[in-house]
Amino acid sequence: MQKEITCTINEKQYVLSVDVRKSLLDILRDLGITSVKEGCGVGECGACTVLIDEIPADSCITLAVWADGKTIRTVEGESANGQLSKVQQAYIDAGAVQCGFCTPGMIMTTTAFVEKHKDCKVSREDIRKGHAGNLCRCTGYETIISAVEMCLKDSDNNDSGKN
């Protein structure tokens, strides 16, 4: 069964006819948005994390039809005019990328986390909790946490992130 949905993906409007049996992960990858990875398919690993109306969600356990009327962000939309986003740059600077499989999902979680905490004091433990839904088999997380810290320190109008 097909259903027509309208949504915005990385600032582009889409009208899509989607199979109700598909996940949001499925249709994003069908559209060629392949930064979104299927790790586990059951909401455990976070490799498929996207922002839906600015909130991180596992797209593998989100029905595609639920994207109707929503705004979706993936890593493909994060750089502008050849310039990486602050979060992307911080991951590079901190050496937080190894095989890269977890990275797109991780970056979307960080993007929402930094936005939500830009005016608060955040500990490394808070960062760990905030990223607990994203697994990484390579880095051991320390460099990822450092990348998140760098983003918080760099936030405009934010001094409180320094500790």
């Binding site: 976070g46 991180p56 989100t62 990223h131 607990a132 839904g133």
Partner: peptide, 9 residues
């Protein structure tokens, strides 16, 4: 419960 993404949905 679970992790952040789970709690968001």
């Amino acid at each position: 419960v679970g992790g952040p993404q789970l709690r968001n949905t």
